[in-house]
Design a protein around this nucleic acid. Structure first.
Lengths: 190, 190
DNA sequence: CATGAATTTCAGTAATTTCTGAAATTCATG
DNA sequence: CATGAATTTCAGAAATTACTGAAATTCATG
């Protein structure tokens, strides 16, 4: 590995973290390298930087493309593909969330739905279904929230984050104000 | 594997998903089994249900305990440990979030902090630092939100989720109302 | 403090995943 | 449509991770 020490530490750390996810070490390292580099890199740049085989780079880039985590650039009069990451870290986060949902949450939801269609053949199965239903409800609430929030612009997202738990207090405040305005004419809304 | 078919499908799916995370197949299966079972199971119950070796069960349960994902129960006049999961799925989610933060986010933040202390030795390093700083800012915003929200009771959490993106609209509404009340006497607050 | 049921540890093996180099493919260019 | 630079594929090797059975340990009980 042939990199400035700061970059090398970053790349190695991401390699480690990568294997703690489903992503493998090399893929994590390549991503970190692309993320922190000031310009797009081609496959051979990566080979040189990380000292891994050309074919490994090829497969790992393919993987990163499948995750939509990487942007393809071209340089005039150069046939090779050059790769970068999006500039906006929030956009990266959105993509990550979307892809992980697709790979982890959606399949689980569809298994849960399928199993909840079945007629339980025993008391044990009946109980299991009740538990699966609880899990399904939780996941559906979370994905509903996610679908709602994922379209927000970066700035609105930041607002929402900064608000955090204060939202519940804010909600109370608004209820009070609104019900004052209504002068107790209507029953409470959902 | 010796289980009612519904339970078996669930357990197998969780095994698959497990390996897509950092968690291994067996650990995922055991967790699913404990989650869906109507009563606590001891190690030998798990051996029978999943057809894996006693020692593997022992190590996997140890792993689940390290993740705080499992509750230990005892049965009178029985020396063996029995295991379950919490009843409340929200509590499970909280624990998962906490543990993943501890293992994935915190170490990354500390690496970022350390690398941002260093004096860049080149233009390339200077650029890398700028990128790491962006990542650090993002992660810190997210963890600040998380720290804020993690204490919420299940019901409040549900309220917050149901609100979703509407929060930003709500915020606008509140601002309007409040500034009306103030009758344009004060400059805007943060 | 000896017994033995229950559990854990651990060295070796099995299974899986990752990585490589060689061969095959792609595709712009003359 | 031949050439060759660039890339991809893929079978096997290397590395890592998961699993097992045997031995060691733990600990309530007599």
């Amino acid at each position: 590995m042939n990199l400035p020490p700061l970059l090398q530490s970053f790349v190695l750390h991401f390699g480690e973290m990568g294997s703690r996810w489903g992503i493998n070490r090399t893929v994590g390292q390549i991503y970190a390298l692309l993320y922190a580099s000031s310009k797009p890199l081609c496959a051979d740049d990566i080979v040189d930087a990380l000292s891994i085989s050309r074919s490994n780079v090829s497969m790992s880039l393919r993987e990163l493309q499948a995750w939509n985590l990487v942007i393809l650039k071209h340089i005039p009069d150069d046939r090779r593909d050059y790769f970068t990451t999006p500039d906006d870290v929030w956009q990266i986060l959105r993509t990550l969330a979307e892809e992980r949902k697709k790979r982890e949450v959606d399949p689980t939801l569809s298994v849960l739905r399928e199993l909840l269609m079945q007629t339980p053949g025993s008391e044990e199965e009946r109980h299991a279904q009740a538990r699966l239903a609880e899990m399904q409800t939780l996941i559906e609430q979370l994905t509903k929230w996610y679908d709602d929030v994922k379209h927000l612009e970066t700035e609105q997202l930041a607002t929402l984050l900064n608000l955090g738990a204060k939202v519940t207090r804010l909600l109370d405040a608004k209820d009070r104000i609104v019900s004052l305005g209504r002068k107790r004419t209507e029953p409470k809304t959902s």
